[in-house]
């Protein structure tokens, strides 16, 4: 056969890469996953029969010992800000990959490696804040077994933390590829789908931060 090119893969129906469509389908599925977790948290809000509680203090005789409101809004506000900034770094990482070598993308601020590292480090910082939060809750007497609030809170935020962890591993993998052979415009899709996932995890956190931490 001479017309080899005619037998290569035909263009896709939408013009988009398969992976781009698949990641959107995956995100749709993840929405239902977090919707189930968040709904359960909200349904169980205020139903715990023993403390500690998220927003209310609990004193004897209702609770055996004095318990403070447990959610640490300042620390979580900081970690939320960190996660939001990681999305910004992710956008800049994608831009750096798409525009590699173009004017305006020289030096550190035009380096995809720098922005991928920044995104990952900000993600790890968020996870560090979550680890600090979980540890301090346990010290204050709230574990996943203590009450309904503990069960639904740790499961919801733990699932989110697991998603951030998976995202960090994904970013480190991209970084490894970048260091090994360099990511250029033709690899933009690899970074693009990771970015879509990362932004999704970020958006979910905004919902969790509002519904769990801010609304009393």
């Amino acid at each position: 056969m001479t017309a080899v090119a005619s037998h290569a893969h035909p263009p896709t129906s939408t013009g988009l890469d398969h992976r781009k469509i698949a990641i959107w389908a995956f995100i749709g599925s993840e929405c239902m996953l977090f919707a189930s977790l968040i709904s359960t948290y909200l349904i169980y809000k205020g139903r715990s029969v023993v403390g500690p509680f998220p927003h209310e203090a609990c004193n004897p005789p209702v609770c055996a010992t004095h318990l403070n409101p447990i959610l640490n809004i300042p620390v979580t506000s900081f970690s939320t800000f960190v996660l939001l900034m990681s999305s910004l770094a992710m956008v800049l990482a994608l831009a750096a990959v798409e525009n590699k070598g173009k004017p305006g993308y020289e030096g550190l601020l035009g380096s995809s490696k720098f922005w991928l590292i920044s995104t990952a480090v900000l993600g790890i910082t968020f996870l560090g804040c979550q680890a600090y939060e979980f540890t301090s809750f346990v010290h204050e007497g709230l574990t996943i077994r203590t009450n309904l609030f503990g069960s639904s809170f740790f499961t919801l935020t733990g699932f989110h933390g697991a998603h951030v962890t998976a995202g960090v591993l994904w970013l480190i993998t991209l970084l490894a590829i970048d260091i090994k052979r360099g990511l250029g415009p033709k690899d933009a899709l690899l970074v693009d789908i990771a970015a879509l996932y990362w932004h999704f995890v970020d958006v979910v956190w905004i919902a969790i931060f509002t519904l769990v931490y801010l609304i009393k």
Partner: peptide
């Protein structure tokens, strides 16, 4: 955990 533990308010 207590998701389905009725005595814990589930």
């Amino acid at each position: 955990t207590n998701f389905y533990t009725i005595t814990q308010g589930a």
